[in-house]
Design a protein around this nucleic acid. Structure first.
Lengths: 204, 204
DNA sequence: GGCAAAACTCGACGGGGTGTAGATTTTCTG
DNA sequence: CAGAAAATCTACACCCCGTCGAGTTTTGCC
C-alpha cells in the first residue's frame, strides 16, 4: 500500500501491476456473477485478465487471496460511505436514512456482499472483514435504539442484543431479496424498517 | 467395527448396505464437526466408515450427494418434530412454545443446520430443502401474527412479509449463537422472542 | 544513454483430490 | 448348489491448485 504522496505527482506511479491487479479483481467479480465461487477456477480468472496462471500467482498467493482482496475492496467502500453519511439525531430520521443507504449498498454491491457472507466461515480473513462491518452496523443500530428510549445494556432485551438481532434480520432479508430484484429489495427494506421502528417503540 | 449381525431372522430388509449408508452419514457428520465441509475429503469419509473410496461411490454419486443426504435426514427430523408439536391458540403461548422448540432443534442439530445454510447456494438440492423448511416456519409465524391482529397480506407491513423478516432474523441469530454456546443460544432466543412479541403488538 | 535491480511473464512440474471402469468377492434367493 | 444381485476393491484418467526456475520487460539511477 503506497504512502500518501503529493496528490498530483507528475510521475506515472500507476505501475503496470496496479492495472493488472485491478483487471484480476474485476474479472473475478464478473466470473462470480457468471458461475459462482466454487465453479470459478484460477485459470478462468487469469484468462479473463489476459494473463497466464503463473502470472496471476505473482500478484496473489491463492484463489482465496483474490476473493479476499475483492471483498476488502468492496467492504472498504462500504466503510467509506458509512463514514461520509451524516447521522441524524432524530431516531425516525436516522432509521429512514440508514435503510435508504443500506438499499443503495445492496443494489450496488449485492453480489460481493453475498459472497462475503457465504465465505465468512471458510475464509477467516473474510469472516473478520465482514464481522467488523456487522459490528459497525450493530453499533449504529444500538445508538439509535438507545436514543429512542430502549434501555442500554447487553441483556437479552436491552439495546445491544436487540441491535444484533435486527442487524442479522436486515442482513439475511436483504441477502435473499437482493438475489431477486430491486423491487423485492425495496419491499424488504420497508418491512425491516417497520420492525425496527416497532422494536424501538416508535410505532404504537 | 460393529460387525455383529442379527442372526435371528428378523426381516431381511436390513441390507448390509443400509448399515453402511448410515455409517457413511454418521461419519460425515462427525468429520463436519472436526474439519468442516471443504477440508473433508471423500477418502476421509470412506475411511471413517470402514470402506474404500470406490465402495463409497457405490452408495453416493459424489461428495455433494453425501452431504445432501445428511441434510435431508436431519431436515426430515425437523419436519417430523414440527408436525408433532401441538399448536397453541393463544399467540403469546404459541410464540413461547415455538422459541423453545427452536432452541432445542438448534442445540441438537446446529451443526448440520449451519452446514445446510452455508451450502444452500452452491448445492441447489440443499437450497430447496432448506427453503422448504423456512417456508414452514414462515407460515407458522404468519399464522401467529394474524391471530395477534396483524393485518393479513403480502404488502411490506403485513403479516406475510413481516413473518419472513422475523424468520430470517431467527435463522441468522441462532446460526451465530449456536456456534458459541448453549447460553448464547438461550439469550438469543429471548431477544428474538421479545422482538417477535413487539412486532406482533403484544408488548406495549 | 546505459545498466543493474525490480517488476513481470511464462511454461512445466508435482501433488492431491475427484469420479469412473472393470474385476472380484460376498450375500441373497430359488 | 448355482446363478443373480449386492457390495467391495484396485487402478486409472482427469482436473485443478500452487510452486519453481528461467526468461523478458520496465524502472530507477548515474
Amino acid at each position: 500500500m503506497p504512502a500518501h504522496q503529493p496528490a498530483h505527482s507528475r510521475r506515472t506511479t500507476e505501475r503496470k501491476g496496479d492495472v493488472r491487479e485491478r483487471a484480476i479483481l474485476d474479472t473475478c467479480e464478473a466470473l462470480l456473477a457468471q458461475k459462482g465461487y466454487d465453479a470459478m477456477t484460477v485459470g478462468d480468472i487469469a484468462q479473463g485478465a489476459g494473463i497466464t496462471r503463473g502470472a496471476l500467482y505473482f500478484y496473489f498467493g491463492s484463489k482465496q487471496d483474490v476473493i479476499t482482496a475483492l471483498v476488502a475492496r468492496t467492504v472498504e467502500h462500504l466503510w467509506e460511505r458509512s463514514r461520509a453519511t451524516a447521522q441524524a439525531d432524530e431516531p425516525r430520521q436516522a432509521i429512514e436514512a440508514a435503510m435508504r443507504r443500506t438499499v443503495e449498498l445492496w443494489n450496488e454491491h449485492g453480489l460481493v456482499m453475498r459472497t462475503a457472507i457465504d465465505l465468512s466461515l471458510t475464509v477467516p480473513e473474510i469472516g473478520a472483514l465482514w464481522n467488523h462491518t456487522a459490528d459497525l452496523f450493530i453499533a449504529a443500530i444500538t445508538a439509535v435504539l438507545e436514543r429512542a428510549g430502549i434501555q442500554a445494556g447487553t441483556a437479552p432485551e436491552q439495546a445491544s442484543a436487540m441491535a444484533g438481532a435486527l442487524c442479522w434480520m436486515i442482513e439475511r432479508t436483504f441477502y435473499h431479496a437482493s438475489q431477486e430484484s430491486r423491487e423485492k429489495l425495496q419491499e424488504a427494506s420497508e418491512t425491516c424498517e417497520h420492525i425496527w421502528l416497532t422494536s424501538a417503540g416508535l410505532i404504537t
